[in-house]
Design a protein around this nucleic acid. Structure first.
Lengths: 239, 239
DNA sequence: TGCCAATGGTCTAACACTAGCCCAATAACG
DNA sequence: CGTTATTGGGCTAGTGTTAGACCATTGGCA
């Protein structure tokens, strides 16, 4: 059998502990899981969560502080406060963001996201949901629909990730978060047009409707259409 | 927003380099990517591929040697030869395998696999395939259909993974390999009945047919049905 | 039969990372 | 207005990991 062994004999770790930690914290910040003005968990606690030593965590925090993402304050009620605000949409240079990640890994990331998010939606639509879960999903949708522009991306992320989280598979949730992260910088670099937001809103409604109706094919198709729209938008701004 | 930060603030690394390397090599062996009698790449080369030092790699290899998976020979034409043969199906204790991984992570793993494999099939069915790709897929299917019992699992793995690999997304391929791995021990522990193999063969045909026909919904449904069958089999043997 | 290229085996010095401890600062609260 | 719990800041000793060099063994081949 000539099955490509590179699929499994790939690097065991992406970098050293410091680098991976910086990356992880940056993810939490850029995805808005710790919003501007909020603070990270205390160092001792966070180090345990991340499975690293406090020394390494502190190095990562210091790097993010020097890069302007965090404001660290000592003493009780102190902590590492997030100062980062997502860039005004359309400000960043999309071409530069693409150049930084390479066109190969761009296609890879888009394909990856398409697969895992469709998979998550399909699984969730095949699952019987209780009232709490339906409420959470509808709540996220409602929040997104009434979001202020500066909150839109964060709530969009939250909406998409809640689909994966509701499946109850933390592996799937982590994978979807990872997939989303790989396109975050790109999404931040394209302008948010009212037309697109309205279009997205309709698609979000369709996704939720299919999930609540227990229609896996419909959910899959709705997510695919939605993500295809995003990809098309990217291509349009790159053309 | 109360989006669960644990999704992204999870451990940065699963263990130390040694443990992760043992795990990775065991995966390559158990998935049959390096079949019995074949040898791993030379240490120097493999260490580079895995992104670790030769010392750490050698520790992992020695552990696998002592556990009986490898036979290491020195000198030119030497190397680390795989001595492991997959256990005769039905021999292992399924309940024990489940107990080792915990019922929570069992459900997690099954859900995860369902999502990513359905996603991969759907994506591939949405992609125009050239003649080489169609031939590869059909070839893997043919190999699987004519497999000897002791080769069946390995070729089944190869078939499933080739779907993800053909999408061209290495992220997706790695994720599907990971998902498969999490259920390998369980699959090895259930007997292979002729009925199930015939059933699986029909489903494999359906998957390939839908992919080649460019029918994403059909591909998704076929994979879902196939994996649901496997999950049902597991449940049956556990009941 | 001897050479030699490829491969595993071993050592060392340097660097990364960890666990645990104690110090310093801060802001709420009595 | 001082106390104090909570938090970041810093140190040290020990362990994990790496890079690179050199040694030992082997089997094919001239």
């Amino acid at each position: 059998m000539d099955l490509n062994p590179l699929t499994v004999l790939r690097p065991v770790r992406a970098g050293n502990a410091f680098e991976e930690t910086v990356e992880r914290l940056l993810q939490a910040i850029k995805l808005g899981m710790v919003a501007q003005g909020e603070k990270l968990p205390p160092e001792r606690e966070l180090a345990v969560q991340l499975g690293i030593s406090r020394v390494t965590l502190r190095e990562a925090i210091r790097a993010l502080q020097e890069a302007g993402y965090l404001d660290v304050r000592r003493g009780r009620y102190g902590g590492a406060f997030v100062t980062y605000a997502p860039p005004p949409p359309g400000t960043g240079d999309l071409r530069q963001a693409v150049a930084e990640m390479g066109t190969d890994s761009l296609a890879d990331a888009l394909t990856f996201r398409m697969a895992v998010e469709c998979g998550a939606a399909q699984v969730l639509a095949s699952t019987p949901l209780d009232e709490t879960q339906r409420a959470l999903l509808l709540g996220r949708l409602a929040e997104l629909n009434t979001a202020r522009p500066d909150e839109y991306r964060r709530l969009d992320t939250a909406f998409h990730l809640s689909i994966a989280e509701l499946t109850g598979s933390s592996l799937l949730a982590a994978t979807c978060a990872d997939a989303r992260l790989r396109v975050t910088d790109l999404l931040n670099a394209i302008p948010m047009l009212q037309v697109n937001i309205e279009h997205a809103a309709i698609q979000h409604e369709a996704i939720v409707a299919a999930i609540l109706a227990g229609d896996p094919d419909g959910a899959r198709r709705a997510v695919a259409e939605h993500l295809e729209g995003t990809a098309a938008l990217l291509r349009a701004f790159l053309a």
